[in-house]
Structure formats: structure tokens, C-alpha cells
Simulated scan of single mutants.
Amino acid sequence: MTVSELTRSAPPRISWRAPLCWVLLAAACLLLLLNALGLGADVRQWWLVATGQADSGTMFLVRELRGPRALGAVVVGVGFGIAGAITQSVLRNVLASPDIIGVTSGASLGAVTSIVGTSLFPAILLLGPWRLPLSAMLGAVLAGALVISLSYRGGISSFRLVLVGLGVNAGLGAGVSWMLLRAELPDLNSAMVWLTGSLSLATWDLLKPVALLVLLLGAILIILAARWLDILELGDDVAAALGLNVKAVSLILLGTSVVLAGATVAVAGPVGFIAFVAPQLAQRMFGTTHPTPGRAALTGAVLMLLADLLGQNVFPVLLPVGLVTSIAGAPFLVWILLLLSKKRS
């Protein structure tokens, strides 16, 4: 029997890694979500709440008190996970996440301006209840456009974009500090809480449009990226030979992810490291060659729900979710940098 006959006769190898990861992440997300809603493990209680038959106290607790916070954690995790996966995959650089290259800083400057800068820019008041998400999205888009335009030299270099992004990030951070110095106490307190990355400010009025936008843009990115990212992974020359317009596709994906990151920041502020950690963690769990937005979205939701759970129950005082993600994300960043240095040595 020849080698080719042996190969054809061998049964196909079935990998359970990806399905197992999907099941474990989905189960973890569901359990953490139920815990965030205060429902516990009572299946009957789940049904009563889902059908609106629970008592008024339980319905008020779930819908009004814990519902916005729980949904906010999922929206933020999904939005940052997808945005981070797209930027890291397109630029082929693990450091190219929205919170490192200045996108979230731009969203923060826009949002802080809408909170404390009404005396300087009275026109912001015309936006009404939409002023926070729209200002955050506008700030993110302007920051992303600035970073891409300054780093674009006949193409997008990930190394140059990260360096430019770090500089823009520092400049926008200075702008946020200047706005805070000019703020009065009531607005200053709100801005400071928001800047730490807190889910306590999430409301249904804010979540409904942002969740719809994150769902829409996230679905578009997942559908577009399903084929494009696999082709881009082969390299620009091979991708161009296969008929893909590399420059146009890269700009479309990056631009959409910037808008997605800006909308996500409006919910809970600039929550650190989720956009960086979720894609990398999902890539290592699933064993893929590059970060993928769908897997990163579910991983990001789990990380946000877990961080909020830890912040409310583990520490002696209540900690905002952004502080918890920063505490956990910093060692992960150091670990990734050590792995990269070992590969290059």
C-alpha cells in the first residue's frame, strides 16, 4: 500500500478544542451574567424573571438596578474584544489595541469634554442625552484618523502606527487633564468616576443605542473579517495576488473598529486592557494563528463580567471595573512582551 493510499484511508482527525472552548466560554458568560443579575442557580427563578412573572421586588432588582450594569459589562467586553482583535490582526501587532494606540484616549477626551466642557463649548448641549456617546465616538474617530494619517506612508506600518499612537495617546491624555483642571466640582466628580472605567453610570437610555450600534458594527466586522483576516494573514503580497485590495480593506476594518471602540467607551469609560487581553487570550485558548473578532468578543464579555464580580466582592472596598482590569492586565502585558522578546532572541 502506497503512502497516498494510507493517507486517504486514515480517518479524519477531529479537533474538540474549538467546540470545547466555545462551550466553556458560553457557560462562563451565562453563569457570570446570572450572578450579576442576582438570580443565582434557581432555574425556576430564571423562568419567572424571563417571562415577567416574578414579584415586583425581584423584577425591579433585575431590570432597574442590576440589569444595566450586567448588560453594560457584556456590551463593553464584546465591543472592546472585537475592536482589539481587528486592530491586532490587521496590523499584525499585539500592541496595536485601541487603548494603546490612542483611540480610547480620543474617546475619553470627547466624553470628558461633553461632561465638563459645556461652559467652553455650549453647542454640546444641543446633542441632549446623546452628547456622551456621540462625543466619545467623535473623539475616537478623530484620534484614529490622526494616528493613521501621521503613520501612513504608502501603506500602514504596524511599528510606525504603534509609535505614533503612543505619542498621540500622551497628547490626548494631556488634553483630558486640562479639561479636568477647568472643571467644577459636580462635573469633576462625574468625570473622574467615568475615567476610572466604571459600570455604575450605565443606564438603559445610554445602553440601548450603544448596544444596538455595537451589535450592528460587531456583526459587520465579524462577517467581513471572516475571510479578509485569513487572507491578510498570508501577507500583503499574497493577499494582493489573491485579488484583495489590501489598503482599502485595512482602512475599512480599522475605521469601523475605531467607531466601535468609541461607542464602547461611552458605556463605562476607558476600561483598560480588555481590548488588548481578550484577543490574545482567545487566540491562545482556541489555537488560532491570529486574533479573531467572534472569539475575542465572547472572551471580552467573560473578562468584563468576571472583573466586575471581583471588584464588588473580593477586595475590602468596592473597586471600579477599570481598576480591576488594569491590575490584572498589566502583568499580562509584561508576559506578552517577554514572550515577544524570547521569539526575537
Rank of each mutant, 00 (worst) to 15 (best):
S198K: 11
A211H: 03
L188A: 11
T203Y: 04
W204H: 00
K247Y: 12
A248M: 14
A191R: 07
E184P: 08
V210H: 10
I222L: 01
V193F: 09
L199V: 06
L199Y: 04
P186N: 07
V210L: 02
L244N: 03
A183N: 06
N245E: 08
A226Y: 12
S198V: 04
L213Y: 02
L215N: 02
V210Q: 09
L229P: 06
N189E: 15
A202H: 00
L217H: 10
A219E: 00
N245F: 10
I220Q: 08
L217R: 09
R227C: 00
G197T: 10
L244W: 05
W194H: 06
A226P: 02
L229Y: 06
L212H: 03
A211T: 00
G218A: 04
D187E: 15
L215H: 01
N245D: 14
A241C: 08
L216I: 10
A225T: 08
W194I: 04
K247S: 15
L224M: 13
L207N: 04
N245A: 12
D230M: 08
G243N: 04
L234N: 03
K247Q: 15
L213E: 03
A240L: 10
I231L: 14
L221W: 11
L242H: 01
L242G: 02
D230F: 09
A239S: 03
P209K: 06
L206W: 09
W228R: 13
L213I: 03
A240S: 15
I231C: 10
G197I: 08
L199I: 00
W228K: 15
D236W: 02
L201W: 09
K247P: 04
G197C: 12
A211Q: 01
K247D: 15
G218E: 04
A202Q: 04
D237Y: 05
A248P: 07
L199D: 01
L185P: 15
W194A: 01
V193A: 09
A219N: 07
S198H: 07
G243S: 13
N245K: 14
I223Q: 11
L201Q: 15
T196W: 07
G235P: 07
D230W: 14
D237M: 08
A191D: 06
A248W: 15
